[in-house]
Amino acid sequence: MSKQPETRIAKRFKKLQDEGRPGFVTFTTAGDPDLETSVRILNGLADAGADLIEIGVPFSDPMADGPAIQASSLRAIKGGMSLRKTLGIVADYRKKDDETPIVLMGYYNPIYIYGVDVFLADAKKAGVDGLIVVDLPPEEEAELCLPALDAGINFIYLTAPTTTDARLPRVLEHASGFVYFVSITGITGTRSAVTADVAGHVGRIRAKTDLPVAVGFGIRTPEQAAEIASVADAAVVGSALVDQITANLDDNGKPGPGTVDAVLGLVKSLAEGVRGARKTEKAS
């Protein structure tokens, strides 16, 4: 295993372990539905129960995402959101909360165009703890993963049901922060996984790493979140939150007055679901 940058992520998972409970991870897109609303949502996530915050960096062609997150990305781009502004949002957030880990999630091209070295320096300075870049598998680790580790930022790898036992060590070789298990073969926000299957895959991963395992894709309700969290170290919810934003848009695509409360309300009930989940003992 390569060196592991010490970030807020490790501290947070340590705290969760001490509390004996799984974590709850939220995903929302920077600038969705507009800059102001997305910042108000972000500012309320930790109090509503998010243990770790994923911020989506909008991209025009999100090939692993379903309709909800695609639309959310396009709304944000239309409103002028960019990677640079996303880093600005993180930097502002850090003035109020220096503990909740922040992970940027997106696709490689905006980072490549920004310039990898400049981006990593700016991201570190802004207070970003980790990166999830969907289209950078370990085969392309030299692009961003290795430079990120050098810059003191965790690079979080996705594993999928298609990731065989033979391949897992390759994926985990430079993984840091946590491992994100994509619970379905499919895109975000579509079908849901069977908990027993997820438990099996999480077991496979845990057998090969000490990193925490978060599970995402297809988790929509507090009940599902609780179930999944009972077999993992954290549950990630994204599309369901984005759907709350979509449901609160008026005919002109402007957010209604209840948008922030609706999203944070769902976050609260999902977080309660996760907190109620009994954490299984980690296989040693």
Binding site: A64, P137, E139, T162
Partner: peptide, 18 residues
């Protein structure tokens, strides 16, 4: 590694990579 100079490569999601 699937490259023509710096071009090409395999920039796909892990689900597809195998």
């Amino acid at each position: 590694t699937g490259h023509f100079g710096i071009y090409g490569g395999r920039f796909v999601a892990e689900t597809l990579m195998p």
